[in-house]
């Protein structure tokens, strides 16, 4: 009895700690890499032109924090907008595909073909259509997000146990209720796998999108560093991108732990 009570008391704490763990891990890994690079640069006397010391990079960021902050916010916003819209649209299309065989057989192949277009080629088009706006970058991120989400949502909803579908039907459930109460929750773990992939892909898309022309953002800082042949500035932008990437990735990991708490594949 007491043992049970103790376990019941400990488990929520353990769960909360488990949820923050990916974030802590990400931060610790980043810090360890920076420290290692610092040591290597000093030990081997590597010239700053080849590889600047991480401490010098951080110093550069701290010298003009506003520029980097604005860049992170801008690129972060682009990614967030495109990612959010792409995730919602991907899930929606996934549901439509799983419900309508006709769509699945006609439109889905077109989707796959569309994804073989390299994002660079597509980026040029988008900038022509949407101009040098934040929307243009969000559209690129959207394009990179919705496809993996659609595919995994569709796969997840088709991975449902037919016996469970039959059980719900025997209770008199409509297709709509079966979707809401069974197919969608079954697909959630698969959807999260796609979201994790898409978070990294989406950020890269936003940075690259900025190369087609913009005035703020991490991609812009990277380009400026390159034109000025300023190694420290380049590395400062890379570091900021890494921080943003880790933050996105762990935010999704956190959401996943909370939402898909039962651990995916049913026991």
């Amino acid at each position: 009895m007491t043992v049970q009570a103790n376990m019941a008391g400990a488990s929520p704490v353990a769960r909360r700690f488990g949820a923050v763990l990916p974030l802590l891990k990400g931060v610790a890994a980043l810090a360890a890499v920076l420290l290692a690079v610092e040591l290597i640069v000093i030990l081997f006397g590597i010239r700053p032109y080849v590889l600047p010391r991480p401490s010098a990079v951080i110093e550069a960021i701290l010298r003009t924090p506003a520029a980097y902050r604005d860049a992170i916010i801008r690129t972060g916003l682009e990614t967030l907008m495109g990612f959010g819209a792409g995730a919602l649209f991907g899930i929606w299309i996934g549901i439509a595909f799983s419900r309508l065989r006709f769509l699945r057989e006609t439109v889905f192949p077109i989707f796959i073909v569309s994804q073989t277009i390299p994002v660079i080629a597509f980026g040029a088009l988008v900038v022509m259509w949407f101009g040098n706006t934040i929307l243009a970058k969000a559209v690129i991120v959207f394009y990179l997000t919705f496809f993996p989400v659609t595919v995994n949502a569709l796969l997840g909803m088709r991975a449902v146990d037919e016996k469970q579908v039959q059980l719900l039907r025997s209770f008199g459930a409509s297709e709509r209720e079966i979707m809401r109460k069974l197919r969608f929750p079954t697909a959630l773990p698969h959807i999260f796998v796609a979201l994790r992939i898409a978070s990294a892909l989406g950020l890269a898309g936003a940075v690259v999108g900025e190369w087609f022309g913009d005035t703020t953002g991490l991609g812009v800082l990277l380009l400026q560093g390159m034109y000025a042949e300023n190694m420290v500035a380049i590395w400062a932008s890379i570091l900021c991108s890494a921080v943003l990437g880790v933050a996105f990735f762990s935010a999704i990991g956190l959401a996943e732990k909370r939402i898909v708490f039962w651990g995916g594949e049913s026991t």
Partner: peptide, 24 residues
């Protein structure tokens, strides 16, 4: 109807699994 396997929904606790038919 109770099929051969329990077919409980992994994301629902005991109470919410039990009330599934009532919800429907």
């Amino acid at each position: 109807f109770m099929p051969q396997r329990d077919l409980l929904l992994a994301w629902r606790n005991v109470i919410d699994n039990a009330i599934l038919p009532l919800e429907i």
